[in-house]
Design a protein around this nucleic acid. Structure first.
Lengths: 352, 352
DNA sequence: CTGAAAGCGCTAACAC
DNA sequence: GTGTTAGCGCTTTCAG
């Protein structure tokens, strides 16, 4: 037993130095613990007067149920876990912020976990991590999980919501990434460009991120529809980061006949591209067009044209769907579907 | 009792559909639960052969102790909580990422909470939230807590580490903000500017953030040392955001005789300032000098001169200090000091 | 070296 | 309406 560090009972406060337990409240109020439990949780079958008395005592004693004890008895954790590829970075931190806000309001604790690789992911989802004893629900952001794993998680009683792609049978929120690619291509073509380049994600993504593939596919679709073609040499790979984008554009510019417009599948990579332009003394929107995706908070700073997605809402919206699903599960059973496809919007600024 | 949702026992796996408990392991290994507990936690007084047998069984059954049960019995949560003013934003998300990485490695769960106001903070720290039953330690980022609150938290057995300012008796990591101001002023003066402006935080910060005051004080100190003075009209207030910075600079530029150099106490506000320059067709580094603080990942993109602080390390370093303190507390008692003042560094780019 | 048993604080039947 | 009691799964004396 850990000795409690010598806490001072302190001044003339009437509060016990020890946290008060349900038993303290019960004896103080002259009732049984069962009644206290019922009263405080708003269950029926408690006389109004009793309930009031108990509430008063609980208030005075500053009683709050011990989450661990409660968890053990009831089997639920009052905790939501947000799983992201990485916690740093604008997109993910914005999503987490949204999730946290919703959870805080609903009285849920929020656990975050960053999984950098499939290995990490395996650890979290493995039987032996006992996810279901740590959390009631999962918000999974941009990390593909196969149906088997989803079934396993769900089967263990953990609700699940995904952001970035759909998960049949569970709530999800995403954008239409193929459409994103199409919009990008259409805009560039509309600007009379013919030599279109692409800065995309890594080929070997550790998490099998499908976004690059989808955006590219929409992009080429639209090109083809207009009788154009995506030259393989005009495709460069960034790592979804600024540096990656810079290097990617650099490679494209080093080509004998570089593209006149480049679609970067993320704003961050587009920033790197703009940086490279600066180094070479080229001006975006004049010497070459650059188009990104996200509408990152800094895109307005560099006047980047971009395909905007409502990132700020994603986390909050997904978390609300999750909580709803969890509450529904308490009563009726079974998974409920609720697939949201959020709208995207072309924001034209001066880089195209 | 929550009915477990009809989980399929599934295929020919030998695993019970129910999570295995310590009792399962015990009976399977032919020992008592006490021995299993000792064996699995590496405690002494277990025969080597017994320990091996138990480990094997535990492995096979994929047994992991239930965190809630463990918590209830032992009184510790294996959880660390990171408290930030907001989860979005580059600085804080970077810190959280660092903290999470360290915690994950050490086997701690990490809870995040964003407190937008003193009210939120009060809720978290209030007796009735029973912080100590949810977490073993706190990493508090840039949120001033008065000594009384610190004592209360610590007295309740929760370890505490602060980032951004020192907390006597507890580990902390920060930069010397007065020095930051001095460095900024010195650099601008070195560039032969005499009419220096300042973009600082809000006067009425909801969290009594002391950073603006300190940086400003260093800034004016250095000015005075060089026989200059900070003109009150040259001080504008941004809200630590891009828009705030933009508006602040706009106000300064609208003055009859605007400053020739402006120190923005954060890079984000500096970005807004740069944006405003762009709108007005002015060029940073030529028409006016702009200097920021942080070395935000985006600063290199716009070539912002800045006073760099090693943000990426802050979260990880603070969390390591926290874990150390927690482990130390288990044995010896009492709080241990470990004040780290991280170095800052002027990064000269092209805006000055 | 190992086991029996008493909690940790709360919830949920089941009686009254 | 309210009280009794049996767990939830684990840790930790205290006896052997």
């Amino acid at each position: 037993m850990t000795t409690r560090r010598g806490t001072t009972p302190a001044s003339g406060s009437e509060l016990p130095s020890r946290r008060s337990t349900i038993e303290d409240v019960a004896s103080e109020a002259g009732v049984s613990v069962a009644t206290v439990s019922r009263a405080l949780r708003g269950l029926p079958n408690v006389a109004v007067s009793t309930r009031q008395r108990i509430s008063a005592v609980a208030d005075r004693l500053q009683y709050t149920p011990d989450p661990a004890a409660s968890r053990l008895a009831i089997g639920r954790t009052q905790t939501v876990t947000v799983v992201v590829p990485t916690l740093s970075g604008w997109y993910f931190s914005t999503v987490v912020a949204g999730a946290e806000a919703v959870c805080a309001e609903a009285g849920y604790d929020v656990l975050v976990v960053g999984v950098g690789s499939h290995h990490d992911l395996g650890r979290i989802l493995s039987e032996s991590y006992s996810l279901e004893r740590r959390t009631d629900g999962l918000v999974i952001v941009d990390i593909p999980i196969d149906p088997q794993q989803v079934a396993s998680i769900s089967g263990r009683g953990v609700a699940i919501t995904t952001i970035g792609y759909a998960t049949p049978g569970h709530p999800s929120i995403r954008i239409d990434n193929v459409d994103v690619g199409r919009i990008a291509a259409a805009h560039l073509i509309d600007r009379e460009h013919q030599r279109l380049g692409l800065i995309t994600g890594l080929i070997e993504d550790p998490l099998n991120f499908s976004v690059p593939r989808l955006r590219r596919s929409g992009f080429t679709d639209e090109l083809e529809r207009c009788g154009l073609e995506l030259d393989d040499r005009f495709v460069a790979h960034g790592n979804f980061g600024i540096d990656g984008g810079r290097e990617a554009l650099s490679a494209l510019l080093d080509l004998p006949e570089p593209p006149t417009a480049v679609f970067s599948i993320s704003d961050e990579m587009a920033f790197g591209a703009l940086m490279e332009l600066g180094r070479r003394g080229l001006r975006p929107g004049r010497d070459i067009a650059i188009l990104g995706v996200d509408d990152h908070e800094f895109s307005q700073v560099v006047a980047l044209t971009t395909v905007r997605q409502p990132v700020a809402d994603h986390g909050a919206a997904a978390t609300r769907l999750l909580l709803e699903a969890m509450h529904r599960d308490e009563h009726e059973a079974g998974a409920t579907e609720s697939e949201v496809v959020a709208p995207v919007e072309l924001v034209i600024r001066s880089t195209t």
